[in-house]
Design a protein around this nucleic acid. Structure first.
Lengths: 242, 242
DNA sequence: AAGTGGTCTAGACCACGTC
DNA sequence: ACGTGGTCTAGACCACTTT
């Protein structure tokens, strides 16, 4: 197939967009297999190698997962290996244990200026606010306050959260069909106020990590804004620079 | 060329190792062009496509940089776009300005337990300790203490640092032939002690980010250990989760 | 015009998982 | 035995840069 210029976009990138569109449309759900490379090549009338290159990029983006001999799967936060993909907190010494989420409150509100800007919605639009604590073993280490657009998360309740033993994002995926693709975290150091000090069982004014996260779904649409306060007495935030 | 099993390593990965070896041996220096894909294919007696795949991975690793129509280059910290590749600190509001490094001290010492472990050298081995401040505009924002293996950095002096207007890693590259490939950062929140409070012109006991970094060169060899204390009153540490 | 990387194709064969 | 993704090759042509 011929290429064009100027402003030329390679075929495999167009194929990538078509596959992304199909994912957005829910044609294949998280955890499921997508059609084989040969089938997709036939569907889009390109060679298998071109489909391969499109899928290569989407695998690098953590949107698809290849499994040799089986097929290509839609990545899912329900997969144990992806479960805490966005949590960079690691114990100072000792083994890597998965944290446990303890939901505290969940209520409706209207978006303030900041939440509206972060979630790219109108100020005053309905939002859901969720508070929880993350425990490693039995110790509370993270206090999270999570802001969600009400329109997308209609029907979210505290009970639903308490009944869900797996990660928050896997619940979002399963119950709301919403897959988190990427996130940005802004990190600062702050002093613990009284309320947080109590939740995390630390001294007031102890330095904590403040981790603000905006999480995006397909099409770089922001769908979650959260602020976590991390106690770093026995844990640290690990980041690989490449 | 035939493949083998079991424990089979694809050809392109073997080619990647051969190219890496040539880089370690200094066959091509940072900023220079490497031979064309055709030439490398001839040298290793494989097809051009196989060399391409090896180079693809090395470009993804930020070890090589492709430039269409010109050739493939060895990545360099002297390149303005790579200059502050490892610095994740961003102003809260306002434009992105490059910081300025102000060296304070530079002295010889013997490695303690911790430094020896981080740098994978013997306790008691010679090291160089370097202190500096990073200024954004005129404000001191980061106080760094940097530990370097003495064997590699023989001849490093405070004057050399003061005369060097560019980034530290570009100096390491130019003067010591040492290219930094990747780094790991461990982040915690701590309170400013008196000395640091003075350096950063902030109140004592103010919460600061403590950023410990181990930086690796070819072959995952650690060659730098540093601890930075970041004032996050008007800046934040930005991290993309993918 | 010549040389570089970038894209696209087609075909062969290997490794892995399932039936 | 079959279907999947993974590797390797060879050739054609496009886009970009330099001569």
């Amino acid at each position: 197939m011929a290429q064009e210029s100027p402003h030329f976009s390679p075929l495999y990138r167009q194929i990538k967009l078509l596959i992304l569109q199909a994912l957005e449309d829910g044609e294949w759900r998280p955890g499921q297999v997508i059609p084989s490379e040969q089938e997709l090549a036939a569907r889009f009338t390109v060679s298998q190698g071109t489909v391969r290159k499109a899928i290569d990029e989407m695998a690098a983006d953590n949107i698809l997962v290849r499994k040799q001999g089986k097929g290509t799967y839609v990545a899912s936060h329900t997969d144990p290996r992806q479960m805490f993909r966005f949590l960079r907190l690691v114990p100072l010494n000792g083994t890597l244990t998965h944290p446990r989420s303890v939901p505290l409150d969940c209520w409706r509100a209207k978006a303030g200026q900041e939440a509206a800007r972060m979630l790219a919605i109108e100020p005053g639009a309905p939002i859901i606010i969720l508070r929880r604590v993350l425990k490693f073993e039995t110790r509370p280490i993270v206090a999270d306050e999570i802001y969600l657009p009400g329109e997308i998360f209609q029907g979210l309740t505290l009970e639903m959260l308490q009944d869900w033993s797996s990660s928050l994002y896997s619940l979002f995926e399963t119950r709301f069909g919403l897959r988190m693709i990427r996130a940005e975290e802004r990190i600062r150091a702050v002093a613990a106020d009284r309320a947080v000090a109590e939740m995390l069982q630390v001294a007031e004014s102890l330095p904590l990590l403040s981790v603000e996260r905006v999480t995006y779904t397909y099409g770089d649409k922001p769908v979650e804004w959260r602020r976590g306060l991390y106690s770093t007495a026995e844990h640290y935030y690990l980041n690989d620079l490449t």
